[in-house]
Design a protein around this nucleic acid. Structure first.
Length: 561
RNA sequence: CGGGGCGUAGCGCAACUUGGCUAGCGCGCUUGGUUUGGGACCAAGAGGCUGAAGGUUCAAAUCCUUUCGCCCCGACCA
């Protein structure tokens, strides 16, 4: 590509409110252009990167035997009503009505469509297993689009669906995809973690997320600094450590704490650290009230409680439900209600809890003397530097971008839709399914989040829009120009993806653009070439410059690329 | 959905509080000249229905109402 022809209009000034590094760099480097909130144009440079990522994904999908299909973006409402998701999916579903007053939605995901297809074509175990995938635009009416292309209302996603006759086969398929995903994320050059995850509204039991470590991520994950354990903080376990306070028990004391409900308020008012407070919250689990206790500097992980209680539905108790003075609840004298405490609570001597009386707390509360929890169980959210549940080394809590998510769906969709097959014994069974997504457009941004410096993007070679940037410092100089042109043609012939900066710009401008665009290799043809036939090769990533005689250039490129 | 903020040239912003000449500045763009290895300089230009609708007024970018769009923070922790 000739720079003079490229649809490239770098922006020096970008809006103040653009936050994420990837967003800033993508706007600056003219990769994308915002059309509306959460809706973007992909411009030539951005689109090339998108295509490269797509190709990597496609190659891996094909290699595990999946076949590519293209499914509609427009879905009739009936399909979504069958699975109940017309209502369950909520406001994120883009709904619309056609001229005949038929209701439709723009597909946020394609389980309904693909399962209906399978219903139409599959009726025997002999046809199973198989996998289909699609790479296409999906739509979600996000409550708040954010971080440029990372959280959009319209975005490109790869979805693979697998169909099986039994659990073993599903498991087989699941791990085939799991390893294909590893290959993909490795090929893209991402720093990522595979974490055990909650399956969310898509459903199913087993699930892994592929998370790209990045500050602007909206996922929070915990991973072990030593072994391979990792999970979302929703799911993560930890090895509880009980630190016994080393002090003697003081007499219980009731204190007036008018209007002070939160841990911070009470802690500040009494000048006692939050770790000495015991937070007590009341939840409703399938209609039954349960009290949960954690140390004041911790947070309850409701996800864990839900699992522990094996409850279908749990929620925090509302002010209007029951007679407890919310904000002043404590375990002392709390009756007819199960109390579950985090093991950490055991270590607290002379703690502070709510008194179950409006505007009062108790000081110097001691476990055993003043109250006894019904059971201890680690129910708080993990924190940075907690101990790994497997190897007891320290965990790291970090933010990341959810880039891939794989689920075992089971028969969640095949059953209601009626995608059945006949077993060898003539039985009719619903097809067992798996579903496996990758946020393709999001990966473009995620990669930039990890690969940049103050001058711009640093593309990993596999997904760079071009491999080589030929930079003639003075386009008006005939010998420079001739050499650059010849080099450009030679490299194209040899199959390299090359940019030739044939603009009549000052050298400085070209250097700045080359850095911003982050093309892995830059070849500078300047005054050293004019004087002594020397050209420069610079690697964007390491900033290493090598000067070599011009006639050795092509050979040298073979070596480094 | 709750709270806050912003819509003025392609982009980034000023002028609005206290209404009043031709709505400014920077980037980018056009023309000419000088420059030419890290976002050059000088000169001359082009480019605006001040988001939209209504109102107040002799007079509205500016005040009022409505509406549309955009951004940020929050959205179960006691």
């Amino acid at each position: 590509m000739r720079m003079s022809q490229l649809f490239y209009y770098p922006q020096k000034e970008i809006p103040k409110d653009v936050e994420a590094i990837s967003h800033i760099l993508m706007v600056k480097s003219c990769m994308v252009e915002r059309v509306a909130s959460g809706i973007y144009d992909f411009l030539p440079l951005g689109f090339r990167v998108l295509k490269k990522i797509e190709d990597i994904i496609r190659r891996e999908m094909l290699s595990i035997g999946a076949q590519e299909v293209l499914l509609p973006a427009l879905h009739p409402s009936e399909l979504w009503k069958i699975t109940g998701r017309w209502d369950d999916y909520g406001e994120e579903l883009f709904k619309l009505t056609d001229r005949h007053n038929r209701t439709l939605c723009l597909g946020p995901t394609h389980e309904e469509i693909i399962t209906t297809l399978v219903k139409a074509k599959i009726n025997s175990y002999r046809q199973l297993p198989f996998m289909l995938f699609q790479i296409q635009t999906k739509f979600r009416d996000e409550p708040r689009p954010r971080f440029g292309i990372i959280r959009c209302r319209e975005f490109i996603m790869k979805d693979l669906y697998s169909f099986h006759a039994d659990e073993d086969s599903l498991n087989d398929g699941y791990y085939k995809v799991y390893y294909a995903y590893k290959n993909i994320f490795d090929a893209i050059g991402a720093n990522y973690k595979i974490v055990e995850a909650a399956s969310g509204p898509i459903g199913g039991d087993v699930s892994h997320e592929f998370v790209i470590i990045a500050e602007s991520g909206e996922d929070e994950i915990a991973y072990c600094s030593s072994c391979s354990y990792s999970a979302t903080t929703e799911m993560a376990d930890y090895n509880p450590v009980i630190v016994e306070d080393n002090e003697s028990e003081l007499p219980l004391e009731k204190i007036h704490t008018p209007g002070l409900k939160s841990v911070e308020e009470v802690s500040e008012y009494l000048n006692i650290p939050p770790s000495k407070l015991i937070k007590t919250i009341i939840i409703k689990a399938d209609g039954r009230n349960v009290a949960l206790m954690v140390r004041g500097d911790s947070e309850v992980n409701l996800n864990k409680v839900e699992k522990l209680l094996n409850a279908r539905e749990i929620s925090l108790l509302e002010d209007t439900e029951g007679s407890l003075p919310l904000g002043f609840v404590g375990p002392v004298g709390l009756e007819n209600i199960e109390i579950i405490a985090d093991p950490e609570v055991k270590g607290i001597k002379n703690g502070v809890v709510g008194a179950n009386i409006q505007d009062y707390h108790y000081k110097n509360v001691n476990i055993g003397r003043d109250f006894i929890p019904d059971r201890f169980y680690p129910i708080r959210k993990v924190k940075d530097r907690d101990l790994c549940p497997r190897c007891s080394k320290e965990l790291v809590v970090s933010k990341g971008i959810e880039a891939g998510h794989i689920f075992k769906l089971g028969t969640k969709y095949s059953e209601p839709i009626g995608a059945m097959f006949q077993t060898p014994t003539g039985e009719l069974k619903p097809v067992i399914m798996g579903c496996y997504g990758i946020g393709v457009s999001r990966l473009v941004a995620a990669s930039i989040e990890q690969n940049n410096d103050r001058n711009g993007i640093i593309w990993p070679r596999n997904i760079a829009p071009y491999e080589i940037y030929i930079l003639p410092t003075d386009w008006a100089n005939e010998s420079i120009r001739n050499f650059a042109e010849t080099l450009y043609k030679k490299l194209l012939e040899r199959g390299y993806e090359v940019i030739l900066d044939d603009r009549d710009e000052r050298a400085g401008t070209k250097f700045v653009d080359a850095d911003l665009l982050g093309i892995p290799l830059r070849i500078t043809i300047g005054n050293k070439f004019v004087k002594s036939d020397i050209v420069e090769i610079k690697e964007r990533k390491s900033s290493e410059v090598e000067e070599i005689p011009s006639e050795e250039l092509i050979l040298k490129l073979k070596e480094v690329l």
